[in-house]
Structure formats: structure tokens, C-alpha cells
Amino acid sequence: MSVPDLLLDPLFRLPLMTGTVIALVLPLIGALLMLRDEWLAALGLAHLAAASALVGLAVGLPAVLGGMLGALAAGVVKSLSRASGNLAYGFMILLGWSALVLIAANTTLGAALGHALIDGQLYFSGALELTAALLLGALTALTLIRIMPHLMRARFFPTYEQANRLPARRWHLTFDLLVALGLAIATATVGLMGAFSLVLVPAWIAFHIASSWTWTLVISALVGILSMMLAYLAALAWDQPFGPILVGVLLSTAAMVVLARQLRMRFAGGPRRRLD
């Protein structure tokens, strides 16, 4: 099959559309998580989403729905307990991993799904996953336009809300829930590490090369989408699981950015000095 055939084949159209939406949304969320120094959230929530997907399966819920419920519950607990930073997510990772492995080890269906969540088999995505991804995309667009300035102000001017007795908590809770929802849907489609890599790597690249916050968002989204497309074709062409290929593509992109920066610094005569 040629590249256009792979992209346009009806069998692969739904997964491709689902992956594109996820690869657009997660890097944007990742940029904000990086800004808040909470990027480990992605891995913590992905683990919990994967574990709750298996629990949901046991009671007859679709994996994407079970994952969403578990991740949202974790987001609410995290926000209400005012746990912030990567420490809270470190504990989530441990809890999620422990539950995921135990459930997968003790049920037949759980073992199969657990394997799929680790592999990140985007190609099994259907109408339900696409609907969830589109819902996530719409929610992200509506929410981020509204809360992004508040989240950024809270980061750079952390006393502003308190000094003016403004209800800042609702913005943080809204963002925590958006992250949880995004990670749950992404984990059910691109897998646990695929979701984490889409949050972490595009934002990391953008933070290093973007000239402004606007460009950070643009570069993050572009890196996410282009890497997803490349990984999609490579995994199909070489008959490999999608998740590890996506992580490989993203890591290669990050390595090329590092190399290009080092070469530029070498030819420019060393790193730029801060001018006072």
C-alpha cells in the first residue's frame, strides 16, 4: 500500500483522525503542564486511567469511559486536596501501575487490554474513541481560551488572586479535570507511554526553541501532529505497535533539536550571553 492509500483507507481513517486530534490537544496541555512544572501529571494520570479502564471493563464499561472516570476522580482528588507539583503525580504513578499490573495479571480480558494500553494500538480506535477525542478537542479549545491567561498569571504572579480575593481554585480545578480527561482518552487510544510522550516531548522542544508563548503553542501542536503522522505510517509500514514508534519519533525529533542547537552555538561562537 502506498502512503496516500494508508492515509485514506477507510479502515484506518478513524484511527488517523482520532490520533490527529489527540496529537493536537495533548501538546497544548503539555505546554501548560510544563509551565506549571507538573509535566509528570501526564504519566500519573495515564497510569490511573489505564488501571481504571480495566476496572471499568470488569463492570461492563468501555475502556475509554472507565479510563475517563478514573482519571477524572484522580483529578478532583488532586485538586481538592491542593496537592501540587510532581510529587502528587509520582504517587499516582505508583498507585496506577500497581493496580494496572495486578488487574491485568488476574483477568484474561484485563491481560489483553492491559497489553493494548501498553502497546498503544491506535489502529483499534473506532467511532467511540473518535467521538471522545473530538469532545476533548472542543472542550480544550473552549476551556483553554478562557483559563489560560489565569493559569499563566497564577504562575508568574502567584499572589494576585489571593491579594484580590479572587476564586482562583476553580481555574486550577478546571485545568486538572481537562488534563485528566485528556490523558484518559489519549491512554485509551495511543497508549500509556504514547500519551505521556505527547505531553512531554513537543512541549519540551517548544520551550527550548520558541520565541514566545504563542509560538510555544504552535510549535508544540505541530511537533505533536507531524510526529503522530510519521509514527502512524511507520508503524503501519513496518507492522509495529504504534505507541513505541511514536515515542521513538518524538525522541528522535528532540535529539535533532538538541543537535541543531549545539551546532548553531558552535558556529555562532558559543551560547548567547545574557545582556544586561
Partner: peptide, 8 residues
């Protein structure tokens, strides 16, 4: 590392 401009 903070890709935010003075204007932003």
C-alpha cells in the same frame, strides 16, 4: 526555561 516574552 520560560518561552514567554516581556510583552506577554
Amino acid at each position: 526555561i520560560m518561552p514567554v516574552t516581556g510583552g506577554e
